[in-house]
Write a protein that binds this DNA or RNA. Structure first.
Lengths: 223, 223
DNA sequence: CGTTGTGAAGAGCTTCACAGCG
DNA sequence: CGCTGTGAAGCTCTTCACAACG
């Protein structure tokens, strides 16, 4: 189920770039491009061509020297490499604004994921049906996770309830958590957590802008 | 408006961590914690204490030796450092599912941002009012950006229209773009782009899990 | 001939260890 | 005495340069 790795350790940044390559490759496939070189792919992804070749080399040899990479085959190879050539079942906890949006979002299946259960501790929400899923009480989580073989928990609760949501997921033996709440959570070592917060990107953006302006001012004053 | 930097180059990772420190510090403030040491903050953020001290050192000296950091003052200092001690005006382009969610989201002001205009090229959406904002035609963007002094563009259009949305923003002299669409966009060098895609985090999560399982299997078979 | 795959060099970030200071 | 601030060491990731090869 999990791929065999050529190399021992693989940088986190590599995985994130593979996601980008996948995006661009899908676009190329839609334009009926059959073969792509690392240089062309690199331009589209705004990275160094060597970087792409090295990233791919962690997982195998997917190209043809003198030619390039077959787009369709490379898409498949990358999916196998990062483990999204199959469907991951997820549960969502916290049916608020964001939770509802995600439940209604159509894009999960083609990326290899599916939300198969929704939980909320608000008694007024329990029983409500959102996007064909009945909202359930978190106390039922453990049994549902086993029945539905859920592997990933998605926290969309308010930040002050994120820890409790995480506790429920850990209790239900979930080992992967995607946390949209603006709060750090504490979990045992064997549980993996990723945080999603688009404000981090906004901060990076405004900061780059500030630095850019500062440099611009400097070079303009003494050319 | 932009802070003075002690050091020339500041790692991108540092900025992202500062966002995390802010989050945790706000939580500490809500619990009426007045002072925090780098060690305690580090535990809560799951990073190395030296890392925190080094990150802060890029911008100044905010602590008291032998004591630690004053929580409220540090929050303010970090906000000044990353340029979110003021309000950034943003425009959103693409009033679909995600666009509407963001327009209705209440959390922007306390993070230093505000959406002051919404655009969509669908004639059926133009004129509609969402969260007190009238949806406008992208052709009006240039004049609105100047009038409202908009500095950031948020793309929430479908991925096949992301490039066109970006073109409108560039044409309107926007220098910062936050792109939620699942597509790379091409912009001139002086424009900064950040991409938001939570699937990247899901990929990292499932990959970590796969690697973890592989190692677990190895250590279990030959202990 | 052109592009991949890769060891080696280089750049950048993180951690250590301790001086400096309240 | 304790914790910050920081130069130096260590480590990881990125880029280069070229051998390998279809």
């Amino acid at each position: 189920m999990c791929p065999a790795f050529k190399s021992e350790h693989i940088p986190r940044a590599t995985i994130q770039r593979l996601a980008i390559y996948l995006q661009v490759l899908e676009a190329l496939k839609n334009e009926d491009t059959e073969v792509v070189s690392s240089e062309r792919l690199a331009r589209a992804c705004d990275v160094n061509p060597s970087q792409i070749r090295k990233d791919l080399a962690y997982f195998g040899e997917f190209g043809v020297r003198g030619v390039g990479y077959n787009v369709s085959k490379l898409i498949q190879s990358i999916k196998v490499s990062i483990g999204t050539d199959r469907l991951w079942r997820t549960a969502l906890i916290g049916v608020g604004n964001l939770g509802r949006s995600l439940l209604r979002y159509q894009g999960f299946p083609k990326r290899g994921f599916k939300i198969v259960a929704a939980f909320d501790c608000d008694p007024f929400k329990i029983g409500e049906v959102v996007a064909d899923l009945e909202v359930m009480c978190p106390r039922q989580m453990k049994s549902r996770v086993q029945e539905l073989r859920i592997e990933i928990g998605i926290i969309t609760a308010p930040s002050d309830r994120a820890q409790r949501a995480a506790d429920y997921l850990v209790e239900a033996d979930i080992r992967c958590i995607l946390n949209f709440a603006a709060a750090r959570i504490q979990v045992p070592d064997h549980v993996y957590v990723e945080y999603v917060d688009f404000f981090h990107h906004l901060y990076v953006l405004t900061f780059k802008y500030c630095v850019g302006e500062a440099q611009r001012a400097k070079t303009t004053s003494k050319p």
